[in-house]
Amino acid sequence: MLVVGLLVVAAAGSGVWWWGMVDDADGPVDCSALLSNVKIKDALGAGYQKGMSCSELGTALQTAAGGKGTEGHTAAQVRAMREILQGTDDALTNSGQKSIDPSLRLPLAELIADYAPDTYEIFKGLDARYVEHASDDRPWSDAAGVHMAVWDDTLIRVTRAVAASPNAYARVRDAQTRQSARILTRIPHPARGVTLTLPPVGNSVALGVLDAIAHDVSQSSSAGAGKKWRSDVIEALKQSAPNPPPSYESDPVGYIRGNWAAQLDAADTAAESKGFTEQGVRLLDIWAKGRADGFKASESLRADCRNSQYDRYSDVVHALSKKP
């Protein structure tokens, strides 16, 4: 009920792993559709060159928006990122296709991951400020810095477009896992009420979006290709996580992320892998154990996380079932 209420408030207010990727029957959007888009040209500015290759375009997009782990972004970079997402969404919508050229998947996934604090909030949909500023022509800022806001359906469609490549999807999921872990580690000790419950429930809502994207990618291909895609995603997530996990005291985010990845089973290629669909609960339990102060999440909170992740998943699955 808490999540539903907050959603109402919010609504008011380059090494690519080619193996394992899947594509929709009608094929991906090619690079020319992006090169001809006015928003993409504007985002690239002086970096735009007529006739540039797909790989050159991917590099230019990252340069314009400041990808690959930039700590904080300038207003110009945030504006470019917003136009890149909107321009890519335009190309997808105009073509009626769901995926994008393989050469662009990892560069765009790295950008989405690089903006994890913002993309997490957009996926979660509980911060009314991101809704209020989704139509702004300019980036908005507060004490924490400059922020990027777009409508959640735009971000979801672009993330779905890059997810056909397992390494690209894993890159986004790992970034959202890191951000979810950061959110948990910021909960004060002791905490009660909304201060305790909202962060893990919010994590679950955001992660439900990625569950839906994984479902849609898997359903777009044969059963065998879908299983291979999931296996490759899990393997990529396990390889990128710290192993063995660090101690909670030395690196709480790494502890949560590493222990979650260690629970993943590459053989779990079911359409709805529990390693994904129960991630919100698993992160909560790992965090509670890492605190080492006897805290244990209540069954009601665990149920709220599980149900919130499933509800968001269901909504996004329905939205993605429609053509752009």
Rank of each mutant, 00 (worst) to 15 (best):
L6G: 02
V9I: 09
A12P: 00
G13Y: 06
G13C: 08
D24S: 10
D26H: 07
G27I: 10
V29H: 08
C31I: 15
S32Q: 13
S32H: 09
L34C: 05
S36H: 09
N37G: 01
K41I: 07
D42R: 13
L44F: 02
G47M: 01
G47E: 08
Q49P: 00
G51E: 09
M52V: 01
S55Y: 09
A60P: 04
Q62M: 12
G66M: 08
G67Y: 08
K68M: 10
T74C: 02
Q77D: 08
R82I: 07
R82E: 12
E83K: 15
E83L: 15
I84G: 04
D89Y: 11
D89V: 06
D90G: 05
A91H: 07
T93D: 12
I100V: 12
D101A: 12
P107M: 08
L111T: 04
D114W: 01
Y115E: 06
P117A: 03
T119Q: 07
T119L: 03
Y120A: 03
Y120E: 01
E121L: 15
I122W: 00
F123W: 11
D127P: 00
R129Y: 04
V131W: 06
W140T: 02
S141A: 14
A144G: 00
V146L: 02
M148C: 14
M148K: 00
A149G: 01
V150A: 02
T154W: 02
L155E: 05
I156Q: 09
A163W: 03
A163E: 06
A164D: 09
A164E: 10
V172Q: 07
R173I: 05
T177P: 04
R178A: 05
R186A: 15
I187T: 09
P190D: 10
A191C: 03
A191G: 04
A191E: 03
P200H: 06
V201W: 00
G202K: 03
S204I: 10
V205N: 03
A206V: 11
L210H: 04
H215W: 09
V217C: 09
S221G: 09
A223K: 10
K228F: 06
S231Y: 04
V233K: 06
P242I: 12
P242H: 12
N243V: 05
N243P: 00
S247H: 04
V253S: 11
G254C: 08
Y255A: 01
Y255I: 02
R257L: 14
R257Q: 14
L264F: 03
A271D: 12
G275V: 05
R282M: 10
L283F: 07
D285M: 05
R291G: 07
D293M: 07
A297C: 06
S298E: 12
S298F: 04
S300N: 11
R302N: 11
A303N: 11
S308C: 04
Y310A: 14
D311L: 14
Y313H: 12
S314D: 15
A319R: 11
A319L: 14
K322F: 13
K322D: 13
K322M: 11
